[in-house]
């Protein structure tokens, strides 16, 4: 059986996988990182989005063996060791940007990459367009867009909606 060595959330793993094993199967079944979900099986819903080398990627659309040497971050790797949440996690929690929560990890991972790729900030319209690859069946996206806009402000050091809400 092929072996793959990759770093996940800062820890190096060497894992035996079948040639057809998907990254999402490696994460969920071998490493027991079940925060990354499988929604549609066909790389459309975005529930399985993780970061590879800082870019968002649908973990059901890449083979585990393609991840040799890769640096992968999953939803479990976002918060700091002391439990401090990433601003995007904080914003999703604060803005009621989730209901059943099944899409949430993928949404959060996609949203972070989206914000990072727009260092000058992004409009609501750009957020809506950037989220096209992530489906949510519960919320109607309204609060998700609001949460991402607020987190973008924090991540990019602008006026902090979150801080204001906390006051």
């Amino acid at each position: 059986m092929p072996q793959v060595t990759l770093t996940v959330n800062g820890t190096k793993h060497t894992v035996e996988v079948e040639a057809r094993t998907l990254l999402v199967e490696l994460l969920r079944e071998k490493l027991r990182l079940t925060g990354t979900h499988v929604g549609c099986d066909t790389s459309q819903c975005g529930a399985c989005v993780v970061h590879m080398g800082g870019d968002s990627i649908k973990a059901c659309t890449i083979l585990a063996v393609q991840c040799e040497g890769a640096d992968v971050t999953t939803i479990e790797g976002l918060a700091k060791a002391d439990g401090t949440l990433h601003p995007m996690q904080e914003a999703f929690r604060e803005y009621h940007a989730l209901q059943c929560g099944f899409c949430t990890p993928g949404m959060v991972m996609s949203a972070i990459d989206l914000v990072n790729k727009h260092p000058g900030g992004l409009s609501e319209q750009e957020i809506r367009e950037g989220l096209e690859g992530n489906l949510c069946r519960c919320t109607g996206y309204h609060n998700i867009v609001k949460a991402i806009a607020a987190a973008a402000d924090v991540m990019q050091g602008r006026r902090s909606e979150l801080a204001r809400a906390a006051e």
């Binding site: 990182l33 079940t34 939803i75 949440l85 999703f92 209901q99 099944f102 949430t104």
Partner: peptide, 20 residues
């Protein structure tokens, strides 16, 4: 906020397929 809001944003929330 939703009782599981934190667990959903950290991936800690377990669905049926997530139980060891």
């Amino acid at each position: 906020r939703h009782d599981s809001a934190l667990k959903h944003t950290t991936g800690e929330a377990r669905y049926a397929d997530d139980i060891p």
